[in-house]
Structures are given as structure tokens and as C-alpha cells.
Simulated assay, not measured.
Amino acid sequence: MQYALLAYNPAEDTDRAARPIPGALATMLDRPEVTGWARLHADGSATTLRNDEGRVLLTDGPFIDSKEYLAGLILIEADDLDGALATARELLGTTRPGTAIEVRPILDGRLRGA
């Protein structure tokens, strides 16, 4: 089964684009169960499109104001939720303090090599 691991960072952690990916995290991202990943710029770089009854509203910035922002996502293959949580726990051990990882099953889509 496919899962998305959504990594959230504290809003004040905005200098990460200038930092290299830590070695332990890079090692995790190279594992075979990781089928894709993306590291995102800080939330201030976002542009949001919203469907307002057929009209498109365009807004600079993130969809919501939050103390955390989506910093990246990692796509994995796991047998079940327990397997996905185990990978997420291991991944969390390679991140900076304050990082949160949300685990969600993927309904459908295309992953690298799929």
C-alpha cells in the first residue's frame, strides 16, 4: 500500500533552503520503500488557487495561517499502517526538533517506478 508522509516544520524554521539535507535523512530517502520525495520552500512562497463557485481566486501565501507549514512530502510503500508508522518514526529521528510527520494512505496516483 502507498502512503504519504507529510513533514511539517515550525513556522520560524525558514532558513532550511540554505541547509543541506542531513546525512541520516538523505540515507532514509535513498531506501527502496521510499518511492518519491519533495522538499518544499517555506510557506511564504506558496500561491493558493481556490474554486469559488466556478471562479478562480488566487491568493499569495499558504491556504491557512498556521504555526507549522508543510515542508515536504515523502511517498513510501508499506504493507500496512503499522509499517508506514515505523518508517515515519525512523524518519522523525533524522529531523530537527519541532518537526511533525503526518501519515496518510494514498487513494491512487503514480509513484516513481510504478
Rank of each mutant, 00 (worst) to 15 (best):
A7I: 14
P97S: 09
L57V: 15
F63H: 12
L107M: 15
N51C: 08
A88C: 05
L49K: 05
A78V: 13
L81H: 13
G72L: 03
E53Y: 03
E12C: 01
L40Y: 04
V34L: 03
G61T: 10
Q2M: 14
G83W: 05
V56G: 05
A17S: 12
P20C: 04
R19Q: 13
D13V: 10
L6P: 01
W37T: 02
M28C: 13
G54W: 07
M28W: 04
A38R: 05
R104S: 08
T14G: 00
R55T: 09
L49T: 03
R50F: 07
I76M: 07
E77L: 03
Y8F: 15
G113E: 11
D65N: 13
R89D: 07
T27V: 06
I21H: 00
Q2S: 12
L111G: 11
D15W: 03
A4M: 15
Y8G: 00
V103I: 13
R96I: 01
M1L: 09
E12F: 09
T48H: 13
A71R: 02
A7G: 00
T14D: 10
T14I: 13
I106R: 08
Y3F: 15
L57F: 00
P32C: 08
L5C: 06
E77F: 02
S45N: 00
T95F: 04
A42N: 10
R104Q: 11
G44F: 11
G113C: 04
R31G: 04
P10Q: 06
E90W: 01
R31N: 00
L107D: 13
K67E: 14
L107T: 14
D43H: 12
L57N: 09
E102Y: 07
E68S: 12
A26C: 01
R110L: 09
N51I: 08
L85S: 07
A24E: 14
G23D: 14
N51F: 10
I106M: 15
G93P: 01
L49H: 11
L70V: 06
P62E: 04
R39W: 06
R89L: 05
S66V: 04
R19E: 11
G61V: 11
A86G: 08
A86F: 02
A114S: 15
E12G: 09
T95I: 01
T99D: 01
M1S: 14
A26M: 05
A88P: 04
D60H: 07
L73Y: 11
K67V: 03
R31L: 12
A46K: 00
A114P: 13
M28S: 04
H41W: 05
L5G: 00
P10C: 05
G83N: 12
L111H: 14
E33L: 10
N51G: 07
Q2H: 15
L75I: 11
R104E: 07
L29N: 03
T59R: 14
T95M: 13
I76E: 03
A26S: 06
T94Q: 01
G36Q: 00
Y8Q: 06
P20A: 15
A17F: 09
R112E: 06
Y69Q: 08
S66Y: 06
M1V: 14
T94M: 01
L58D: 06
A84T: 05
A17W: 11
A26D: 12
T14F: 05
A17V: 07
S45W: 03
T48Y: 08
A38W: 02
I64Q: 10
E33Y: 04
G61N: 12
M1N: 11
R50M: 11
A11F: 11
V56T: 14
V103G: 02
T14H: 08
I64L: 14
D30K: 08
L107S: 13
G61P: 12
R16Y: 13
